[in-house]
Design a protein around this nucleic acid. Structure first.
Lengths: 215, 215, 215, 215
DNA sequence: GATGAATGAGCTTTCATTCAT
DNA sequence: TATGAATGAAAGCTCATTCAT
């Protein structure tokens, strides 16, 4: 009377790391595209090399998978920022590099912008559960502070500048270009995603920042 | 255990407009809080003065209700902006008024910011179906252009300024403060929603804009 | 992209009480047969006049349904016991009536015995959540005490008898005959469910009780 | 996030018997606690010194393990009963010893009582598959018959007593105290597991039996 | 013998929507 | 117009079991 469950085998590769990162990649796309509640576990599983069962095996539940996606994003962002190596450039050049990198990074990785939006819709409930995220990200503020200090010493940047405030300004200008693209297109018939428009906006943003920081 | 059939309605006021706006208010909160797929029709109906049936009666389906919510938002935003009456103020004063209004409006109506985020997650699919939205919103660009023209004439604003670009800058800076509040708090331990922080940021944003536009 | 869910109709009777009690009947059988975790919601739904969805509509979840089943059992047991009307019979006759009723009731309603076993396996976690059960059941102890008091006054029952203790004895003897039937059959090749065996046991149990209570 | 492959085994003692009895101990607890369908193979494996594979290696499947648990219980019960050595005691003393042993054994080994309940829920389907159980257990009936015969000869026990019937009475009274503990607690606010209550009940049960058997 | 990774079937639950009254 | 009852489809998740090493 107790139904025996006999799994049929299909024989697949046994590389946990590969399996996990494959799942995360697919999940990133789905969560970025549809949000947390809009995402479908089945759809993620389908596009994966593995079965749905493995999502649960490795990540516990849908939310656990979502959290893993968030973490993986922040880790990648940090690596990219670190690679910029701002400390060895002249203050203004470093700042410009940071602005342009930030702009380009957001434009290129739209799905990440979307993920951050999704997470804000959820009031940051899930990032808050990733303990490793804070230290990862505050390094960017250190870089910012370093640029300002050196710039002030050399007389090319205003000494009153605040690192967090300046970073917020840059982030806001770059993020918005991607985040609000669709409503802006609908409302103003202006496509911020168009590459020509984007190029102009990139220059414009540097202009805004430059005029704000210079002495 | 047997639920006796006791009508829960307190007011049987058959006022369609009242009923509809009540539904929209409740729905706005729900959609802003949970997004389109996270929102629950049952939850909306529960918090309404009416029954679930009415919700379908007036708005067709969940998406129709969501669209109605979006439209209602844009209409209210327009009214508020119109009330500013920028044309009769000196260019710089008008610009500052607009910046501060935009900042305050977003801060005060966080649920609207969230709604816009939700709509962008859905790639603007639903605003696009609201034909009346475009004309509603492009008036703000006209105001912007008017300020720039007058400012340039009076020599207080740079003539090269572009209306759309400038408005985007302002919108980005103000929107971001609300939209990315939660991830910033988790990542930088900085609460952009705190009123003291907000007051400082408000000044800072005007500073950014001012330095950008002045001659 | 948002899949519209359009229910197809089959047109069915609209009698909530009927629907609910139908579900409870079917569920009683399933839970008694397989226990809480062994029971299948699908199987219950299948044998019902309604759909699976209604189980959740009325009872919340599987456990809620199980609780409703338990409650319904205790309510029916109470009615039956009350119908005995022990107070108007002579003490010994009343006691014998109670013993025989208890024996017969357990024999006839084996599924209820099984339900009580299931609930004890779960350490009474679910009955504990049924607030109305205690008052329902303690009336039997009152009857018991009344019989003992009257019996002692009339000199036909020992005065030292304790109501709870005596009831436990009766319950134990009657319950066991049904509850442990299967292991006894396997171990002793004796079928306590056989009607001849049962008839003998019924007499025997009254004999045990009688010898215990008489002066 | 990457689980490094560190073997958790502390003792690699390849002692099959030891391994098997370890598994059975853990499984006994799980099956007694949750029943057959409520038990989780994963949970059992976790609490074992070995891996899940071994569990299948030695017992075939979940049901095989359950059967092994049942068998192990009946074997232990027989040893204990045999150790009582009732044949060399005076009839009444022997009977009392048996009653008190039975009571104490059930109280002490509640998990065994639960296991028997579980098995009865499953209608004895699994004990029935254990061929060795019948002979094991009928020895207790032989002892019973022996006591009655000797007691009747000596004029201290009623000659009409039936071994099976008497044993059933004793078993019922002792078993119930453990088996129905939780529902009784919920219903009558009486804890049959409390040691004071149990001591009183132990005396009471002997009283019941004694009055039943004496001449 | 021993272990982590993998599997498919099936389980409980939820959701937007519509019918009967 | 209004409302509780009802619905099918599908969503998230769990389970006993087996493979590769």
């Amino acid at each position: 009377m107790v139904a025996k469950r006999v799994p049929k085998r299909t024989s697949r590769a046994k590389d946990p790391e590969r399996t996990k990162s494959n799942i995360i990649d697919v999940a990133t796309a789905e969560f970025a595209e549809r949000g947390l509640s809009g995402a479908r576990v089945d759809r993620i599983a389908e596009r994966t090399q593995t079965s749905k069962r493995m999502l649960y095996y490795y990540f516990g539940d849908k939310e656990g998978l979502y959290r893993a996606v968030l973490l993986s994003y922040y880790e990648r962002l940090r690596s990219s920022e670190t690679a910029l190596d701002l400390t060895h450039q002249a203050p203004l050049a470093a700042l410009r590099a940071l602005v342009e990198f930030t702009f380009d990074y957001h434009m290129k990785h739209a799905s990440i912008v979307r993920l951050v939006m999704v997470e804000n819709i959820h009031k940051g409930r899930h990032v808050a559960k990733l303990p490793s995220v804070t230290p990862i990200n505050s390094t960017i503020l250190d870089s910012m502070a370093d640029i300002i200090r050196r710039g002030a010493e050399q007389g090319v940047l205003r000494a009153e500048l605040n690192a967090f405030d300046l970073y917020t300004t840059i982030a806001a200008l770059c993020f918005f270009n991607v985040s609000n693209r669709y409503t802006f297109r609908a409302i103003f018939r202006h496509d911020m995603g168009d590459s020509k428009e984007a190029a102009k906006r990139r220059i414009s943003i540097w202009d805004v920042v430059h005029r704000y920081v210079r002495t």
